[in-house]
């Protein structure tokens, strides 16, 4: 076992995969800065920067994947993915279906996401539900360094396109670059276990679609992903002091989604509270409700999600993003009501 920071773990797993598979190349915005450690080890032919041309380099990544490479393509923020989204929605996601399974594009798109450091509504979105809506894309949202490295490894072994979300609040690299910028006067509500933790000496892939119970409990199931998992764990602990036994399920991937564990958790407690940093409407939280309804599982259901554009002001931002206090309040009213 080694101890690693979140992004360090992703890069370490990526490096292991790059040693094993010479077809993996990394490119994207400011990769020379962000992945300089990989650059020093693998050289500029495999680690390269791009112009700010998302539609071109994402599209090129998709086609390079079609033609035999395994590109890991990076965009500075998931919000900026919108500029080049055609490559993913109309091309990467469609290829397998259009060719009746004969041709796929094994690209990994690595995108920093999420808020809590003050960048505002155009730089702090989650958007995983938006992408998961498109058939043909796999969506990965790790919450710990160990999961992050292992999921990167399995992302690199998929036949089709994977969007790999790297939450900025967990990432030592992005927080330093975007949030603190070398000043010591700001502090963020960084979940310690998500930011740094034990990782295996040699990375092994973690299959997509396997949720994990982070905490067991019998009264209520908190289902979440990414930073939301840590908020849920904190809330569960506080609820425990009030005599409520809350279970926390970390989905880890949204597409594929672990329907079995979702249903099992819901059936066990009969009370489901979804914590999703992505927008509330038409997304993951509603999808989970549909999964339960379709399975004929009747539960008491509530959700804590981001409801509107994320405001810049620190206090408003804090209130808008799912936080421990609102999870506790929602849990209590769910159990009472």
């Amino acid at each position: 076992m080694r101890l690693m920071y979140f992004s360090e773990a992703i890069d370490d797993a990526l490096a292991q995969a790059m040693v094993e598979d010479p077809n993996i190349i990394v490119f994207g915005e400011d990769v020379l800065l962000l992945r300089r450690n990989l650059l020093a080890r693998f050289g500029p032919a495999r680690v390269r920067g791009t112009p700010i041309s998302e539609s071109a380099f994402l599209g090129a990544g998709v086609a390079a994947a079609m033609a035999g490479l395994r590109p890991v393509v990076e965009v500075w923020q998931v919000d900026f993915l919108s500029v080049g989204l055609d490559a993913l929605i109309n091309h990467a996601a469609k290829l397998e279906a259009f060719t009746h399974g004969n041709w796929t594009a094994p690209i990994v798109v690595r995108v920093p996401c999420g808020g809590g450091y003050g960048d505002g509504g155009q730089h702090e979105q989650s958007l995983w539900g938006w992408l998961a809506h498109i058939p043909g894309l796999s969506i990965v949202v790790p919450s710990t360094p160990a999961d992050a490295g292992r999921l990167m490894l399995s992302a690199l072994r998929q036949d089709g396109p994977v969007v790999f979300f790297e939450h900025k609040l967990l990432s030592e690299i992005y927080l330093a670059a975007l949030g603190s910028g070398g000043r010591e006067s700001v502090q963020f509500d960084v979940p310690a276990e998500g930011n740094r933790g034990p990782v295996p000496d040699k990375w092994a892939p973690l299959p997509l679609g396997e949720a994990i119970i982070r905490r067991d409990g019998g009264d209520l199931s908190l289902i979440s992903i990414g930073v939301g998992v840590h908020r849920a764990l904190e809330a569960a602990q506080a609820l425990g002091k009030d005599g409520v036994s809350a279970q926390v399920l970390d989905l880890r991937t949204i597409q594929p989604i672990d329907k079995f564990q979702v249903c099992q958790a819901a059936a066990k407690t009969g009370h489901v509270l979804i914590i999703d940093e992505d927008y509330e409407g038409f997304g993951l939280s509603g999808e989970l409700a549909a999964i339960l309804l379709e399975a004929g599982i009747s539960v008491k259901y509530a959700r804590v999600c981001t409801q509107t554009t994320i405001p810049y002001a620190q206090q408003l931002e804090k209130q808008m993003l799912p936080n421990t206090e609102c999870i506790i309040a929602s849990a209590k009213s769910l159990l009472v009501g």
Binding site: L32, R36, A40, R41, F42, G43, A45
Partner: peptide, 26 residues
């Protein structure tokens, strides 16, 4: 960067030096 440069597995010395050169030139 140096630690990564020295790690086992990865590019040839030439490729690694080319990577280092880019970082240094920045």
């Amino acid at each position: 960067v140096l630690r990564s440069f020295l790690r086992k597995g990865g590019g040839s010395l030439k490729e690694r030096l080319a990577g280092m050169k880019m970082i240094l030139s920045k």
